[in-house]
Design a protein around this nucleic acid. Structure first.
Length: 366
RNA sequence: GGGGAGAUUCCCGAGCGGCCAAAGGGGGCAGACUGUAAAUCUGUUGCAUCAUUGCUACGAUGGUUCGAAUCCAUCUCUCCCCA
């Protein structure tokens, strides 16, 4: 299962062994919500991008193509041609992102499908059944992700309900699937801590911190991590959901997080923001029109090995889909390489030095 | 040769006496994006100025008017129809 190999301060080097493959942590999971990385990047490409885990979404795949269709193809992994581990998000984030299209009760959430408006009910049992059909390596508990800031009494009520849902998820999870519980509690540390303790009492294969990076200030997020992580078992992986920028990841690893996922590298790439080891480059900018250097001279991803900024900018301006593919591949490679460097530096006990070097640089605009 | 239509800001295109530096697109420039309803969204786009404001602009020139992109005259150029 999960082995903690080494620590460097609060930063952890770990290894999670699953039936679908080994995950070296800290890890960044590459987001393919509908069983596809947006930007025409295939599961085959992912291996060349040092991806370890692909993340897919329960809600989206339940709507289309339908989880039973996926189940009949043997699950997500054979369906999308990815041989490594898959984590499925439970649909809890859609309780937040589709807030205008849903209604919550103790039993679960009724969504108006964003595709055709038809009513979809999803509660803990439904989410577990769907994730079982999807055949993911790791299933996530069905939770309510609440925007920040939110009134204390709502957060308290919601976190309690999410906890009851977590217990129902544990009872309903498909045999052979790993299940991570999700800590909630908004920006209120006492609610978070109490919630974390009770989550640990139920017992999960891993623990996620959810409901962060949804409106609160970044230092508040770091504070919550400092308060909550010490209450989670050391021998279980911790997953900070939906985070974040390279700087966010460095800071969170320094506080003891092992798993990450985020749409940023793919979405930002599609929109022109390119991660480099000197900061964020916006390929839309006119100054790159005749720049013959690669996106990042320090990068050896397939994009940087073959194409110039001038060409990428042209493809972007011409709205050629090749732009997206090349840019998304670069950013994912960057994130996965960042995680590799993080692991390497924890291993040699120099994680602090890596942070000193990279933190002032990676999230800055160039 | 005869008859008709038109020339607007980088482009297309609306406006047809004052509320016009002039709608709306496009393009350009810039910004946002954190468990993806996102190949999306926002701002900006004559010059000068912090701003008030000033200057230059609706093919050209002249005119009518307190006031013209809008009305009149002439000119230049485009397009369509008939011979």
């Amino acid at each position: 299962m999960f082995e903690l190999l080494k620590t460097d301060g609060a930063a952890r080097l770990g290894r999670m062994t699953t039936k679908d493959g080994v995950i070296e942590t800290p890890v960044f999971m590459n987001v393919g919500t509908v069983a596809a990385i947006k930007g025409a990047v295939s599961s085959r490409d992912l291996a060349a991008l040092k991806c370890q885990v692909e993340l897919c979404n329960t809600y989206h795949l339940h709507l289309r193509p339908g989880d039973e269709i996926v189940a009949r193809r043997g699950g997500l992994r054979p369906f999308m041609g990815w041989e490594g581990p898959v984590l499925t998000d439970s649909g809890g984030f859609q309780v937040f992102s589709l807030a205008k299209l849903r209604d919550i009760t103790e039993e679960g959430v009724t969504f108006a499908s964003h595709i055709d408006g038809r009513r979809i009910f999803m509660g803990p049992e439904e989410s577990m059944r769907i994730q079982g059909n999807l055949g993911s390596t790791i299933a996530m508990a069905f939770d309510e992700c609440v925007e920040n800031p939110a009134p204390r009494e709502y957060i308290g009520m919601s976190a309690d309900r999410t906890l009851r849902w977590a217990a129902r998820c544990k009872a309903a999870v498909t045999q052979g699937q790993l299940l991570f519980g999700i800590n909630q509690g908004g920006t209120y540390s006492d609610i978070r801590i109490e919630n974390a303790k009770r989550l640990v009492d139920i017992g999960f294969d891993g623990y996620a911190v959810g409901g962060l990076a949804v409106g609160e200030e970044v230092p508040v997020m770091y504070g919550i991590l400092e308060d909550v992580l010490p209450h989670l078992p050391k021998d279980a992986p911790r997953y900070l959901m939906g985070v974040g920028t390279p700087g966010n990841i460095l800071e969170a690893v320094a506080r003891g997080v092992d798993f990450f996922d985020c749409v940023m590298p793919a979405r930002n790439a599609r929109h022109g923001h390119i991660n480099t080891w000197s900061g964020i480059l916006n390929i839309n900018n006119a100054k790159y029109g005749e720049d013959d250097s690669p996106l990042d001279p320090m990068c050896d991803c397939p994009t940087c090995r073959g194409y110039s900024r001038a060409y990428l900018r042209h493809l972007k301006k011409a709205e050629e889909m090749l732009y997206m593919r090349l840019a998304v591949m670069h950013n994912l490679y960057f994130y996965n390489t960042l995680m590799e460097r993080i692991r390497g530096m924890i291993e040699v006990g120099e994680y602090g030095r890596l942070c000193e070097k990279l933190l002032p640089v990676l999230d800055r605009r160039i």
